[in-house]
Design a protein around this nucleic acid. Structure first.
Lengths: 246, 246
DNA sequence: GACGGTCCTTGACACAGATCAAGCGGGGAA
DNA sequence: TTCCCCGCTTGATCTGTGTCAAGGACCGTC
């Protein structure tokens, strides 16, 4: 699952994201215990991090890179159900397997915890379960917000919704509240189509249309400049301040 | 949020659903504490239980009846993002407001807890946060499964998916595993359309088509007989045993 | 029993997006 | 440099679902 963080936690080690996902309210000794069960894993672009049928023996956070969660029907139709950006959490404490395929779309570094000891820490450290509950509620809000996008928005609105999210979550732009934003598009047109419930041709046409209408500029095919984020969000049909989605 | 329960908990009071949602692992004294902060609320069919802009001062479970969670855009397009059946949990511990409109579609009885004391119990009783985390993970799975329905399934598959879920969750049929099922349809054609991302006319046409093809029989407009649930699930494009969705 | 209201069904037609098809372009390999 | 490949764009056409419209079924009220 992926999580949008509301606030950074204290420094609890040399992990670049410093366990923000799980330690915002932890005490020093709890952080030290987390340190002991942590390790790093690297994945290459295109590599599958977890298969939906796998038993997952770890939980963790994305440190750098970009990954996706997808579901696939037997006949090959696929739907992306979540994006994983740096600081997002992956894993299902208390669950056996993964429900989705998790795939790296760029090179990815993950900060992981072995699942068993992490679950034990959850029991001994109530903050952690509470923090995970909060994060999971954020996920749920994001998933349901995306249901509105999938069920009721037009192709143009869908693209605008996706770009609004990516613009607001870009590592370099995050939290600066600027209205003029540039971001990297880690997704192919096909991956965008799978997230939006469209075909790649429709995605390509609508991206061209947004460019023609001056809502976006293509610095390259995978780098987007948004001169007026508020206008793009309006195009997406978002209410004034927009939902937070990942 | 709504939750599909995996197992019934112990009896912890006179509430018809016996706090199953929150007390499956609670001790007797914890159950007694829950009893003290519980109360009942009744809603009539069509009544709004919570507005999305409201501050929610309670959490609770549906005891009887049928309710829905919906999101609406300014221009009136609406998307249902969840169904609430008996034993499902409503509320966002640790959060200020509701993110969705919650509406009773039949008469509804809720077993509620005042939010502040419930949150205090969550802190003093780690089982509860862990149980809520499990429930929220179930919700998240259900929401993401529904994203696949919204993004990639045809109108016919969408209707078949909805009927499969309702057939498997009907209070009278639940857990008996029968392949020949009859259930009440608490939703209007319009509400079904809002859940499925369709128009009510398309819903009506596809229901007629499923009837014509012998996959369902209409005992009345709001009561459905499924002679072969496995075949209906196949029509929905579900993998063999189907996901659990609500 | 007639009336009115709500929900539902069905038909005719329109259109957004899918499908099929052709070709472009930029980056890596030799 | 040239070539190739993959991701992307664009055009032409098709089709599933939306839209608009008419009327039917059921139910409660007078």
């Amino acid at each position: 699952m992926n999580v949008q963080l509301k606030s950074a936690g204290p420094n609890c080690g040399d992990c670049p994201i410093r366990h923000r996902a799980v330690c915002a309210r932890c005490e020093a000794d709890e952080l030290a215990a987390l340190e002991k069960i942590k390790y790093y894993r690297n994945f290459e672009a295109g590599q599958t991090i977890v298969w939906s049928s796998d038993r997952m023996d770890f939980v963790g956070s994305v440190v750098s890179g970009f990954a996706t969660l997808t579901q696939t029907m037997e006949d090959g139709r696929t739907q992306m159900v979540g994006l994983l950006l740096p600081s997002d959490f992956v894993g299902r404490p208390g669950r056996e397997g993964s429900a989705y395929d998790v795939t790296a779309t760029t090179d990815v570094v993950m900060c992981c915890f072995h699942k068993k000891p992490f679950e034990q820490m959850m029991i001994s450290t109530p903050h952690i379960a509470q923090r995970l509950l909060e994060m999971t509620l954020d996920e749920l809000d994001a998933a349901r917000e995306w249901m509105l996008v999938l069920g009721r928005k037009t192709a143009r609105e869908k693209i605008a919704s996706l770009f609004s999210i990516l613009a607001r979550r870009d590592p370099k732009e995050i939290a600066n509240g600027a209205n003029d934003v540039t971001f990297d598009l880690a997704l192919t047109r096909e991956a965008m189509a799978d997230y939006l419930g469209l075909t790649l041709e429709t995605v390509s046409r609508q991206v061209s249309a947004l460019k023609r209408d001056g809502l976006i500029e293509l610095i390259s095919k995978r780098r987007i400049h948004v001169p007026d984020l508020a206008r793009l969000m309006e195009e997406a049909g978002d209410d004034s301040d927009g939902g937070h989605i990942a």
